[in-house]
Design a protein around this nucleic acid. Sequence first.
DNA 1: TTCCTTACTGAAAATCATTTTCAATAAGTA
DNA 2: TACTTATTGAAAATGATTTTCAGTAAGGAA
Lengths: 140, 140
Amino acid sequence: MTTSSETWLEQLHDHGYRVTAARRAVVDTVFGTTHALTPSEVYDTARKKYRALGLVTVYRTLEKLEELHLIQRVHQPMGCQAFIAAGIGHQHLLLCQQCGQVEFFEGDDLDTLTKSIARKTGYQIQEHWLQLFGLCTNCK
Amino acid sequence: MTTSSETWLEQLHDHGYRVTAARRAVVDTVFGTTHALTPSEVYDTARKKYRALGLVTVYRTLEKLEELHLIQRVHQPMGCQAFIAAGIGHQHLLLCQQCGQVEFFEGDDLDTLTKSIARKTGYQIQEHWLQLFGLCTNCK
DNA sequence: TTCCTTACTGAAAATCATTTTCAATAAGTA
DNA sequence: TACTTATTGAAAATGATTTTCAGTAAGGAA
């Protein structure tokens, strides 16, 4: 199962969006990184591939990629504007506090906890966010 | 063990900050709510207690309260600008998606998960965020 | 209490991120 | 190849937050 940035472009096309040079540059940039990138960082990197790119187009393209669940916003203490390629299925994030690298992991078993909290509080729990922060192998 | 907004004012004072009418209004507002409030919402509410209050002072006061760990920022899909009185010790958030009410809970046992992820990824894990979203007893 | 230093204030201006507007361009179907 | 219309970048507008600044007042010292 190999995925490439072409897959994202196909998805855009399949949803009635046009595939343009500007969008290719943005898609290639976000697809090809393991670090969460802000719109401004995407702009800087993508402009190396396509000089005429405008920041506005970066915002608009990220919006569409998020809508198609191809990327997701990353929340951090320092800010919540960065995006990363989305994980497949229900996954959680592991972030390196030093270099900003992002990894996904699955296999959380929060059912017991969730049910217990639901019972105690009376809430009907519908989703959860779990994120781990630490130092990656390079940084520690 | 009863806590009142006076405790927060004492804390401000103990850290060399002055206790002013503007700060009382902000502190009273944030202390006395179970919903996460944005700076602008704090401003609107606090101005009922102290008409001359400026929005800038709200920002500055929230900054200090956060610095003293008396309040904490609440991250939500819709935005991350809201604050709520901080939980005591290591607590997690439970948010009502309908009315925005916030509750705290403890007793997460993520040690097993954390260690397992650390082993698999090589990361040295240092902290975690866990948040549950759902509907409170009133809203469901 | 009164004085005095200096932190604090609100208003206005500046900054920064994001969104909207708009006329020109180009994707991709017919 | 032609044509419709989504997309583009630039500029302007918006919205949130921060900085600047001169006047005010908190609270320790006398």
